[in-house]
Design a protein around this nucleic acid. Structure first.
Lengths: 184, 184
DNA sequence: TGTACATCAGTGAACGCGCGTTCACTGATGTAC
DNA sequence: TGTACATCAGTGAACGCGCGTTCACTGATGTAC
């Protein structure tokens, strides 16, 4: 039966939220259209009233994931130190909860093999994240941007390595990266 | 028709080599058993004379990929500087050729979602790579190990971000990470 | 405001397709005598 | 060394399954008068 426009908007938001979570948990190919719709409390057939294809959902879900993650990092203090970002990013909590964590560390490699349009969306998300981290740094605009990129790269790499390895290697990598190279 | 034992060994090596390449190029789920066998010059049916399952091939192929990549990094000089490793890792060549590149930067995220036994194999590969990089560093054994882990994490993260983003973001990230944080 | 009707959000069965895996078969290889 | 036979590497058809997508249908919503 037909739903009201307001109801449709709510369904749409639930689909995107479920996708943003399930894609990060299981991968773009690991979460099916049917599973996303079921998680959103709907049946699979209605999906194409909301998106042209699974690929279109992926784009929207990745934008949502970046927005949510940047907001989560910035939450609380208006101006966090980069040490605070690093502690959050490299925490056991983030290690164990990819579904609400950094989209780069969960989806980057699958995105690499997808069309340019998705990589553009992903790149925009990366820029937003770099901007958020750069705001916590000192130095000239140019220098803090470079520092933020290096900082983010190290955090992403550490999390990818930790999640893909045995527990012992994982905690060695996380703890080695928790302290800045400058203080090594 | 039955092949000789020597011929079977050669087939086995070709299957593993094809898998190590195709998995890095297309992902663990993106390369099928049939494609790997075809690339190795065989038909799909014979696969189970060589491996119990696709999962078993994945383990062997990842070991092979780590070994090949560590060797490629170390090739030439017996004792490269970490700056040389970084230049190689963060090159445009590595960006464009994941199929012969670092297995962490291509397969880490899929490995995260696989059984513990595969993560153990992957972790062992990570340790080998960390060891190779640590050998190029100064300081105490403990300090150079930590430095190697941070170094590898940054390189992996930078490559993951670059490959998943638009070209402009990609080259900004690679160039920002090519110089050490110490010289920033 | 009330009525008649077109629209369309959501349902559930069905589709074609590629996947990992199985299996009967072939015939050269390897072995026992 | 020669012979008879069991083994098994590789082939290609077939399997069950889950996927993304399509479609006929339902009935409340939204709209034109």
């Amino acid at each position: 039966m037909r739903m009201s426009q307001k109801e449709k908007d709510r369904s749409h938001a639930r689909i995107v939220a479920s996708a943003a979570r399930l894609f990060r948990e299981r991968g773009l190919e690991g979460a099916s259209v049917g599973e996303v719709m079921c998680d959103a409390g709907l049946t699979h057939g209605g999906f194409y009233k909301h998106f042209e294809s699974k690929g279109a959902l992926v784009e929207t879900a990745i934008e949502e994931a970046f927005q949510g993650f940047v907001q989560m990092l910035a939450d609380g203090d208006a101006q966090k130190s980069y040490a605070a970002y690093r502690a959050l990013y490299l925490s056991e909590d983030h290690l164990k909860h990819p579904e609400i964590g950094c989209p780069i560390a969960t989806l980057g490699q699958e995105v690499s093999r997808r069309p340019e349009s998705l990589r553009a969306v992903f790149g925009a998300g990366v820029q937003r994240l770099v901007g958020a981290i750069a705001r916590s740094m000192g130095g000239t605009v140019h220098a803090r941007r470079k520092a933020a990129i290096r900082e983010l790269s190290m955090m992403v790499g550490a999390m990818v390595i930790a999640r893909a390895s045995d527990d012992e290697t994982a905690s060695e990598v996380l703890s080695a990266c928790r302290r800045s190279a400058r203080h090594a």
